[in-house]
Every structure is written in structure tokens, then in C-alpha cells.
């Protein structure tokens, strides 16, 4: 009984349990769901959301939100093939450049929030709109194909049978958990999220940490964009759009407070898997796209009521 109560108070654990239950039930009832190939595919999709949601988790922990992650993904997916130089067979230069641009976009978001005091929700929404306009001008309506070797490897290779994207996600998860739980910066983010004034008067720099957070969010969105490009082999306008809401939903499903100050990436990880699994289950149901969207929205609400709801304050 006590163990159950403890689990109910521990959102990351609760979300993990929920994922396990859903997989178990679906695996026993739906043919093909429990196949290794199918589960691996679900994890591959989760990896993308998990990596976008990494930056989102940090920003939300500090009480902000980043509405530009979808646009940043699209920017990286379209820009990378265009700026990868031909003389570099590995494609490393293109990746570094693209990640620098994605981080730069995040930095500008942070600068707007920190110096101009624009609320993050407005700043990042404006940034997303701005980027979408730029993309239409740069890329037009056409899709660009990727030839960058490293990107293709990342999207397609399976060392030891594990997709490279999942390996990348594991690496990102380790880094994220270290930042939040083992580095001074993580404790500062949480303090700023829970009480910015008290944190500032305790010598925590609001400016520096805001810049850092949004830069990280841009970086992780860029990383996810590269992975999506590798999996898709093509970049086009709108490729990143589905990841904005899913990244926020994964964070909240994992029990992180949307108001900031409380939460962990350990919850976002099962949050992302749960989200992808739910989508897959809905796809199995034979329904029109409209109904699928409605079911998806209703299911997210239902899941939030079970796991990710705000704890009583």
C-alpha cells in the first residue's frame, strides 16, 4: 500500500508504470504490437520527441516555455543540406554549423526574454513566426534531400541492433540528468522557477541562466532536427510542426510542473514513450484522421489527469 502511495507521489515512476501497463496490455491484445521491430520503432520515434523535450524540460523548469522548437527543427532540417560543404565527406562541418545556428536562435530567444523582458511565450512565438517566414523565402515550397553521411548514419544505422537515434537519446538523457541533478546550474534553474525574486536576491543571475536555458533549448531542438532529417532523408517546411505540442505534452506527462520549479527529465523520458505509444494505438484503430486527432487530444487530457497533473500546492 505504501509502495503504491509512494509511486503516486512520484510522477516519473508513475509514468513509467503507465508505459509498462500500456505495453503489456497492447502486447497481449494487439497482434504485432509486442514484436521487437515494432517496439524498436516506437522507441525511435520517442527518441526524437525526447530530445526536443530535453530543452523544453529545462525551460519549463525555470517557469518559461519555448514555442519555437518546431520552427527550429524545420530550420535545421532544411538548412543542413544547404550548408553542408561538399569537400567534407563526413558531414561533420555541416552538423556543427547547423547546431551553432540552432543554438544561436535559442540564444536570441533568451536575450529577448532576459534583456528586453519579453515574456518567453511571446518571444518564442514571435521567433517561430519569423523563422517560418524566412524558410518560405529561402527554401520555397520544395523539399531538400540530405546527402550528409553522418546525418544519414544517425537516422538509419543500427549498431548492435539499436537505432543510432536511440543511442543519441540515451546520451542526451545522461547529460540532462547530470545537468538537473548533479550540476549547480540545475539547482539554480529550479530555484529560479519556484521563486525568481528569492533566487535573484540569493545571487542567482536571472540573465545568465535565461540565456543558457534558451540556448540549450535551441541546441536540443537542432539536434532533434538533424535526427528527423536523417530518418526522413528529406527536409521540408512544416516538418518540425508536430513536435511543438508533443514536446510540451511529454514534459507535463512526466510530472514537471508547467509553472516551473518542480520536475525532472526522468519524467520526460517515459512521458515521450507514452505519447508515442498512444499515437501508435490510435493509428491501429480504423478511424478517419479527424477522429484520430480528437481521440489523441482526449487521451492526452486523460493521461494528464492520471499522471502529470499539478500536485496540490
Amino acid at each position: 500500500m505504501n509502495a503504491v502511495k509512494a509511486a503516486l507521489r512520484n510522477p516519473p515512476l508513475l509514468t513509467f508504470v503507465l508505459v509498462a501497463l500500456v505495453w503489456l496490455v497492447a502486447g497481449l491484445t494487439l497482434r504485432g504490437f509486442g514484436a521487437y521491430g515494432h517496439l524498436r520503432y516506437l522507441l525511435e520515434l520517442s527518441a526524437v520527441i525526447g530530445i526536443v523535450a530535453a530543452g523544453q524540460t529545462l525551460v519549463i523548469l525555470m517557469g518559461g516555455i519555448d514555442l519555437s522548437v518546431g520552427a527550429v527543427i524545420t530550420v535545421t532540417a532544411i538548412l543542413l543540406p544547404l550548408i553542408s560543404p561538399d569537400f567534407d565527406p563526413t558531414g561533420g562541418i555541416g552538423i556543427v554549423l547547423t547546431l551553432a545556428i540552432a543554438s544561436g536562435i535559442g540564444f536570441i530567444n533568451g536575450a529577448g526574454a532576459a534583456y528586453l523582458k519579453v515574456p518567453p511565450i511571446i518571444m518564442t512565438l514571435a521567433m517561430a513566426t519569423f523563422l517560418q517566414g524566412m524558410l518560405v523565402i529561402v527554401a520555397g515550397g520544395s523539399a531538400v534531400s540530405v546527402t550528409n553521411a553522418t546525418v544519414i548514419w544517425l537516422g538509419q544505422a543500427r549498431p548492435f541492433g539499436i537505432p543510432a537515434g536511440v543511442l543519441l537519446w540515451i546520451a542526451v538523457s545522461i547529460v540532462m540528468l547530470l545537468i538537473i541533478h548533479r550540476m549547480p546550474a540545475g539547482a539554480r534553474f529550479l530555484a529560479l522557477g519556484a521563486n525568481p525574486l528569492a533566487a535573484r536576491l540569493s545571487g542567482v543571475s536571472v540573465t545568465r541562466n535565461t540565456l543558457l536555458l534558451f540556448t540549450l533549448s535551441g541546441f536540443f531542438a537542432g539536434l532533434a532536427g538533424i535526427l528527423i532529417l536523417g530518418m526522413n532523408r528529406q527536409g521540408y517546411v512544416g516538418i518540425g510542426d508536430p513536435y511543438l505540442l508533443t514536446s510540451i505534452a511529454a514534459v507535463v506527462l512526466g510530472g514537471t510542473s508547467i509553472l516551473g520549479g518542480r520536475g525532472t527529465y526522468a519524467g520526460t523520458i517515459p512521458g515521450a514513450i507514452l505519447l508515442v505509444t498512444t499515437t501508435a494505438l490510435i493509428t491501429v484503430v480504423n478511424a478517419s484522421p479527424g477522429w484520430r486527432s480528437i481521440m489523441f487530444g482526449a487521451l492526452i487530457l486523460g493521461l494528464l489527469l492520471i499522471s502529470g497533473r499539478e500536485a496540490r500546492r
Partner: peptide
């Protein structure tokens, strides 16, 4: 309550907040 302390956080995290940067080993707490 509003300026001095981060109320929902633990006593320990509140006590550590100003000295976070000083108690690190290889960049980790």
C-alpha cells in the same frame, strides 16, 4: 516568504542556494 526563501523547496536546497558554485568537484555538485 516571497524574497528570502524558495518555499516549496527543501531546507537543504535553500541553505545551499548561495554556495552552489563553491561545492563542486569536476563541475558536478
Amino acid at each position: 516568504k516571497h524574497e528570502g526563501l524558495v518555499l516549496p523547496h527543501s531546507i537543504a536546497s535553500n541553505l545551499l542556494l548561495p554556495s552552489l558554485g563553491r561545492l563542486t568537484k569536476h563541475g558536478l555538485r
